[in-house]
């Protein structure tokens, strides 16, 4: 059974979803219908965080969001981080710190960390660990990921102080 045509707002753009199966998750629709395959599927039960997106500014597992119920919400995916020509500070920190190995967990982690630093620019180690405890990484043991957060956080703090002193 198919549901009616509906519109999703992803990274500021409206997308029409047609011919969807009624039980399709937001993750599925993003990946397979909207061809925004940056969000990853590793468990489809909310245990790995690879599919993390922002829904009205809060991180959620897009595999646990019914796609057709996200109509009218602001959805931000990994494709919405950074700009066309430039990657964001957190994305750059990930590359520089060696936080990327296979890269499968990376998009979800970046969305989670970007949101964390937006709400808390200078989190302590334990805060970061709790904030990313829903994002499993099998390659890195998290060491370089935590380092990337420190780099991005330090840069933001330095930048803020610079702006203040101006």
């Amino acid at each position: 059974m198919t549901s009616e045509v509906y519109t999703l707002t992803v990274n500021g753009n409206d997308y029409q979803v047609v011919d969807g199966h009624s039980s399709e998750s937001l993750l599925w629709v993003l990946r397979e219908r909207l061809e925004l395959s940056g969000s990853k599927n590793a468990c489809e039960e909310g245990e790995c965080g690879s599919c993390t997106v922002l829904l009205d500014g809060e991180i959620v597992c897009s595999c646990l969001v019914l796609a057709a119920s996200a109509v009218g919400r602001e959805i931000t995916t990994i494709e919405g981080l950074g700009s066309e020509d430039e990657i964001s500070d957190v994305q750059k920190a990930f590359v520089d710190a060696g936080a990327v190995q296979c890269g499968f967990c990376t998009p979800g982690l970046l969305v989670a960390i970007d949101q964390l630093l937006n709400s808390n620019p200078d989190p302590d180690d334990l805060t970061v660990r709790e904030a990313i405890s829903g994002n499993l990484c099998r390659c890195t043991g998290y060491g370089r990921i935590l380092e990337a957060v420190r780099i991005a956080s330090n840069n933001r703090t330095a930048q803020n102080e610079e702006e203040k002193s101006k």
Partner: peptide, 15 residues
């Protein structure tokens, strides 16, 4: 640094 690092952080790397 990894040559595939940038596409991976942008979600553009094709798995």
């Amino acid at each position: 640094l990894r040559p595939d690092g940038i596409p991976k952080v942008k979600g553009e790397f094709v798995f």
